[in-house]
Design a protein around this nucleic acid. Structure first.
Lengths: 228, 228
DNA sequence: CCGGCGTGTCACGAAAACGTCACGAAAACG
DNA sequence: CGTTTTCGTGACGTTTTCGTGACACGCCGG
């Protein structure tokens, strides 16, 4: 798995360190020393991942992240934040601006590489317009219909999006907050327990064809759709 | 096996020698000429190993080692001391300050590389999102599932985290307090004996596939997961 | 205006998980 | 061989987590 990675970092030492390690993993590396340079690079290239320092000369990393998320062409590029402080507030704020992960300095290259791998892999499955079918349950995004063993099922809008997300990401556990991000939208103010209720509603909607039970509860972790 | 290594050494000749040899082994090298520079580098990066000269201009290597050991984030980085004198007292003192190994100048590059390899092998691997498999026991963090010989096993949240930690750190003994730090979290107030109970629960959860016995008791030391 | 419909939140109870203790067995010690 | 330490285990009370029914609110078409 090799990718093009943009590094936005002003300290030459860290620049070198990242360039070396990323190069060793077979990734192509683009370097920018500040937000302006980064913006310039992004006009010409579209990296698969952005490593973004929290503290930058001039414009801060957070602002840059916001601008990237606001850009229609760039908004889907995963961002990993590099932060000097481990303060919880910073972490949360970083994630709220759309960063996919963060790591605090000093960091071990090993850990960073693992996160990069994880983030790149996480992006793999996408919700598309294609119909999905699992265990005799078929969902068609275009006609906005769900069939359980050729029997039409009736779902509400939220239940539909929830099921669509699960069916395009099977065999994976998602926490309530992850589901809120993915199904409700990134920055909604909704109680986490609300997910429970919609899971229940989805389950009862799937019951007529016996496809409830597809959605399993994983205690202490979240929910999962599994063919078993 | 490639790692990031910080070299703290003031003689340019030795610097070059180390850089060459380490680079040939596929390691990334960070260089610092004195303790101050080293501290600066450590603010941003977290190497997998530190090669530390005993004698440094200004602050001595021993002081630096002490400071590293006192830093919560850096204290687990292995340190190898480079010393000019072969006196036993110095050796002991060096080890007492937290060095994992030492080597006396002049040294043969071959010997140094051997020691580095040994120290790095001891280093604990990381927990990632990758599935782990040992002796027919498979744990997948993504789907949050555990299979023993293709038979699904049912674990509670704590048992799952405990097993995950053990499987990513096999063949190594961990004390109860270490396990509390790693699995429960750094700052929890819990009795150490609680670990015993969870070990028992984990063992019984693994029993259906005969994978209890993977977790062994080391009297007076702690617990260990071993493939035997 | 009113009556579904979709939605978010709450309260309650059941079930699971958790932490702690007491007791006895096993090992280590002298 | 008796004492002491360490560990396994069953039991118990408490806390956490989850499922579920109920309700209030906004929206929209009749």
């Amino acid at each position: 798995m090799s990718a093009t990675i943009l590094v936005v970092e002003d300290e030459p030492g860290i620049q070198e360190l990242l360039k070396l390690n990323l190069g060793q993993q077979g990734h192509s590396v683009l370097i920018a020393g500040d937000a302006e340079e980064a913006a310039h690079v992004l006009r010409g290239a579209m990296p698969d991942l952005i490593l973004l320092d929290w503290m930058l000369p001039g414009q801060s990393g957070v602002d840059l992240a916001r601008r990237i998320r606001a850009d229609a062409r760039l908004k889907d590029i995963p961002i990993i934040m590099l932060t000097a402080r481990a303060e919880e507030r910073d972490k949360v704020l970083g994630l709220e601006t759309g960063a996919d992960d963060y790591i605090t300095k000093p960091f071990s290259p090993k850990e960073l590489m693992a996160r990069i791998k994880a983030v790149l892999r996480r992006r793999a499955p996408q919700m598309t317009e294609d119909a999905v079918e699992i265990a005799g349950l078929r969902l068609d995004p275009v006609s906005h219909r769900v069939y359980g063993r050729d029997q039409p099922l009736s779902l509400g809008p939220t239940e539909f999006r929830l099921l669509h997300f699960f069916m395009t990401h099977p065999e994976r556990v998602y926490s309530r907050s992850q589901l809120l991000d993915q199904v409700w939208g990134d920055h909604v103010f909704v109680e986490e327990r609300t997910v429970d209720v919609h899971i229940r509603r989805l389950r009862s909607a799937l019951e007529p064809s016996g496809h409830d039970g597809l959605i399993q509860t994983v205690r202490g972790a979240g929910y999962r759709l599994s063919a078993n």
